[in-house]
Write a protein that binds this DNA or RNA. Structure first.
Lengths: 205, 205, 205, 205
DNA sequence: TCCTAAGCGAGACGGTACGTCTTGTCTTCCA
DNA sequence: TGGAAGACAAGACGTACCGTCTCGCTTAGGA
């Protein structure tokens, strides 16, 4: 947002740091280590940058991680914003499809960030975005069904979607993104029991 | 599990450590600090125990935290196991009621453990338990609706419940445990859209 | 010594650096800091010069300090060289007078350079000069009194003078330069005991 | 002076640190390096001690150096204090003899500490001690010869002695400690000119 | 009754990482 | 060309925490 263009060296260094921390996160997980065990020296080494240089750009590891994650997530939000037709999460599986495609693309990374060792930061960012986006599209009354706020409803649904994503990654992605998108669509709209009645309207039908 | 009875001093020391870490977690959150910032020295100081004594009982902070959390969660599982009538999560809100009552009792603690600074460990433990319990009670076919495994279905629902719990805590518990239990019940069974149709069967009806 | 005249900008920059380091030395001492604690950045800031510019002129702080000190000491040597009558350190207090006058003029600076925090560099430069000068004037035999070389004798006397200067500065210059010059003259020529015998020939008499 | 006996491990560690820094000082000088160039890591490495352990005992390098030097100097002061007969610096060369013997024993070390790279600390400590000792032995009137305080006189003499020691070390100890002690004795008592008159009373006579 | 084994406090220490500071080099751009 | 401005590598700094060890005290149970 700043008017002054960034020094290309600065841009390059930050990119190196982003790639380094995201790589290391995946590796640490594979090796069964804790994410906190990644040191700033590790990041600097991997980025082939002096440790002090890290501090020229970021105060803390989480600050760097935040930036690095944003650069990934922005690809997802861009997909939503640039969709040719508007995306309604209650009327088609398209939005869920975009989500699962994006997750699948960076599966190794999201597996860690959303997994048991993750910190809730990423899931919250995704939930926040989906809640905002859906609220803009759907336009619900403030209060529904006596007591629940529509925000709670939307947010709870978004949370379930992220939970499902997390489960999917943990299980090794046993279904295709299309199948998962379809499942999410049905689950969000019609809930658990919609899967139980034999003649239920399957979204794939 | 050991046959030999524990030395009462050992028991006392561990209890002191449990209380210490759980207290410190709540305080750290209030002060805006990161949970990782709690040091073993902090815990020992708070427990009024020598730092070395910590190492006589636990290898790592997480090991202690695990034990400490288990001692809390066991109250919840005991509530489920000792219920006079069987609890079916698809037929009544009772199970959700037990859950929200328990969470409410230790709200400050769970707010942190399930919040953005939490580590996914606690939510996973709760999801695991609810999934196991529900699977035992409900007994579904392995495959439903063409592709989804019943485990996914149950787990996804459990995840949504935890997501809702998390939201409730973050928002400062704006509704009563009864209201939340009812909402969860309806949401899990009938999904998002069940709240939208005006004449929908409200679970409180 | 170079034939090519120095760029006036260069001359100016060096002068700025000299003044900066000498000022900072005095301030550091007043503040109770160590001389080593003065950084090149400090010097550049004080000289209102970019830090990199320092490196265009000097490799190290000591190199700069050496140059800066030389520019001060050259005033003293000039006073000796341009004296209308020759200066004999064994026959009058005049040489000592020149020395103490010069020291008094830059007392704050010499107090540091010769003091406990100093490095021996300055005292050695002064002793060297006085020894050289005295040897040229006095022309002693190489060996005196059986074993001592005349150089030792001259040098030891010069050292005592510097020691006395140092003491004088540390004590806050309790006597006038004239008194100190007289004292040095007597002390060098006749030693400690010359002050003890009541009727001793005082050099001021 | 503390009533509580020191932990023998502590004693050992400090001794290791003393030896390390004194060794390194000599080596640094031989290699032409600056004393400031000795890092705390260097000292710790040489002492075969962890760097952090250094900080358990000393705040700064100079603090350690101070202690290390004291342990050397205490040998000299012990020699003075335990002398069977009282030592009068105006009546015999014995005191000077003790000094030069001690210096000779640790010549390599004192050569550096008193040399151009030294910091004035050591010479001041020696001068302080000799001034104190002499003042106690000799008992002079406060004011002598019109203006000079007896302290100045004693101190100036002590300074000359140290200057002579310094010169002796720098020149590679060209005379024996006995010769130097004799020279100091004569120089202090009778001054420069006492060496010039051919029939002057030599102190060895 | 002693005594002996376990729990624990206390402190020294090796080791890793931290965040900061200074140094020296480089590159770009301006007067 | 001299100098300003800024990015960066390199390495030391002083601090914090960790995990291990050794010592010495207490206390309870078995000889």
């Amino acid at each position: 947002m700043s008017a002054t263009k960034l020094d290309p060296r600065v841009k390059r260094t930050r990119k190196l740091l982003w790639d380094a921390i995201l790589d290391l996160i995946i590796e640490a997980d594979r090796a069964g280590h804790d994410l906190e065990a990644i040191t700033i020296q590790d990041i600097a080494d991997r980025a082939e940058v002096n440790r002090v240089t890290f501090y020229l750009h970021y105060k803390t590891k989480s600050e760097l991680l935040g930036d690095a994650i944003e650069s990934r997530l922005s690809e997802l939000t861009t997909a939503f914003e640039t969709s040719p037709s508007p995306i309604n999460l209650l009327e088609s599986a398209k939005g869920y499809q975009l989500l699962f495609d994006h997750i699948a693309q960076y599966a190794a990374l999201y597996k860690v960030l959303l997994g048991e060792r993750g910190t809730g930061y990423v899931s919250n960012r995704i939930i926040d975005y989906m809640t905002d986006y859906a609220s803009r599209q759907i336009n619900l009354p403030a209060e529904i069904s006596g007591f629940v706020s529509s925000t709670l409803l939307v947010r709870a649904s978004a949370s379930s979607v992220v939970s499902i994503v997390t489960w999917w990654l943990r299980e090794g992605m046993p279904y295709s993104p299309e199948q998962m998108a379809a499942f999410c669509f049905q689950f969000c709209c019609h809930g658990f029991t919609s899967f139980l009645s034999p003649g239920a309207s399957s979204p794939t039908a």
